[in-house]
């Protein structure tokens, strides 16, 4: 934990930065060069395997997305250029799914951030039964998503479910679009808030106690200490937590698959891709959607890293700005 050693907040980190850069330009000696070559050689097998298992499928799906490739019509496979992209991007179902995905992502991540922060503070401050508190908070995250989703589904099914009877007055909420999306979002929040809390708690550990005490001495209220001291210091941890959760939420599949299977226009982009790829056997259109999701995820990551300055956990806080 290099963070714990450096005492200062975000401003100090920026001031230190220039000192680190000059050494990169120095010429390498013979020994150093040989060492580097050996290093590359040792890395090579791992890189080759990564290229085979991660790189090749990506390239292959891009290639598939440029073809009419439908397992139902094997003799009509042909290269169609960007036709599949035009088809998907001009299709109402795709944009509906995109909209549903964005709504679920934004709403669930926002609520998770607030709840996660509260949980993190509780876990951080607890003095008695710390183990019990932390463990019980993490239970939802420990349950297999599909299993949890099934219990949500039964809970919301009229006749068998306690939630449907008590909260929805016996209405089949999962068969209507807006209520179903709300239920899916709720299940998602319940499931992943602990994960958010865990990441934020790691951030809380960065906040030096002395700083908080000093602020208190200067007359800052609890809220001011939270907003003006804790949040700025925690910013890298918050951004990482947000990035992870946004990427995760954007690819939502298992909860939706069990709860609505995408009926009544509740498909997310992943659900839609699955339906076209696995159910529809349309490798062309399905791969096009996969590639589009890949691009969307890349954009989200880019925005977080470049615009908000999120740094990978472990690297220096606020390193890139």
């Amino acid at each position: 934990m290099s963070h714990a050693v450096s005492p200062a907040g975000a401003d100090a980190a920026v001031a230190e930065e220039p000192k680190l850069s000059p050494k990169a330009k120095a010429a390498l000696s013979e020994g150093k060069k040989a060492e580097r070559r050996l290093g590359l050689l040792l890395c090579a097998p791992a890189i080759l395997i990564m290229a085979a298992v991660a790189g090749w499928p990506i390239i292959y799906s891009v290639w598939l997305s440029l073809q009419r490739y439908d397992l139902k019509f094997p003799d009509r496979t042909e290269f169609v250029g960007l036709d599949n992209y035009i088809t998907v991007l001009s299709n109402g179902y795709w944009w509906n799914a995109m909209w549903v995905t964005v709504v679920i992502t934004v709403v669930s991540v926002a609520i998770e951030l607030v709840l996660g922060m509260v949980l993190a503070l509780i876990m951080h401050r607890t003095l008695v039964g710390r183990g019990i508190v932390r463990t019980s908070t993490l239970i939802p995250y420990g349950i297999v998503t599909v299993v949890a989703a099934f219990s949500w589904r039964y809970a919301w099914t009229p006749g068998t479910g306690y939630l449907a009877e008590t909260l929805a007055g016996g209405d089949p909420v999962l068969t209507e679009k807006v209520p179903a999306i709300m239920v899916v979002t709720l299940a998602e929040i319940w499931k992943t808030t602990p994960f958010m809390a865990l990441l934020l708690m790691a951030g809380l550990a960065l906040v030096p106690d002395d700083l908080l005490k000093a602020a208190a001495m200067d007359g800052a209220t609890a809220w001011q200490r939270f907003i003006k001291v804790m949040v700025p210091v925690m910013k890298p941890a918050i951004l990482v937590a947000l990035l992870f959760r946004t990427l995760d939420a954007f690819r939502i599949f298992d909860n939706l698959f069990v709860l609505t299977a995408g009926s009544q226009g509740t498909s997310s982009v992943s659900m839609l891709t699955y339906n076209n790829l696995i159910k529809g056997l349309n490798l062309g259109i399905g791969s096009t959607m996969s590639v589009l999701i890949f691009i969307a995820v890349a954009i989200i990551a880019f925005v977080f890293v470049k615009l908000f300055g999120t740094a990978a956990p472990g690297s220096d806080g606020g390193g890139r700005r």
Partner: peptide
């Protein structure tokens, strides 16, 4: 027709 031509998007 789109579905028959493999151009359709399944909902």
């Amino acid at each position: 027709q789109d579905a028959l031509d493999s151009k359709g998007v399944l909902p």
